[in-house]
């Protein structure tokens, strides 16, 4: 059994661990914002489908409204890219 508390960390090990943490952070940034946009789009999407079912002319407009919460996931993606590069 290795005692991590007292084991000596080499520079390579610390760098590798930091890289890993960055990757986890980037993953969380994209993943959580993805879920958030999904929830936001759920309500807008169902209203959009309802409106389009009644009146086809509004399709272009409601499509635009539906994808507005996509901005959240784009922010997440930007943060992830900043973290990684």
């Amino acid at each position: 059994m290795v005692d991590f508390g007292t084991a000596e960390l080499t520079l390579e090990m610390i760098q590798a661990s930091q890289l890993g943490m960055k990757a986890i952070g980037a993953g969380l940034a994209v993943g959580l914002t993805g879920i958030a946009s999904g929830i936001a789009e759920m309500a807008i999407g169902s209203a959009a489908v309802g409106a389009t079912a009644e009146n086809r002319d509004v399709f272009g407009l409601v499509l635009l409204l539906t994808v507005i919460p996509e901005t959240i996931v784009i922010f997440g993606l930007v943060v992830a890219l900043l973290l990684l590069f």
Binding site: A43, S46, V49, A51, A53, E54
Partner: peptide, 20 residues
């Protein structure tokens, strides 16, 4: 409520009624 999928059905139906 959201994850049960009920809310979206309500939103869909109520929007249709509003448009009508």
């Amino acid at each position: 409520e959201i994850s049960s999928g009920l809310a979206t059905n309500y939103i869909y139906a109520c929007t249709r009624m509003r448009v009508r």
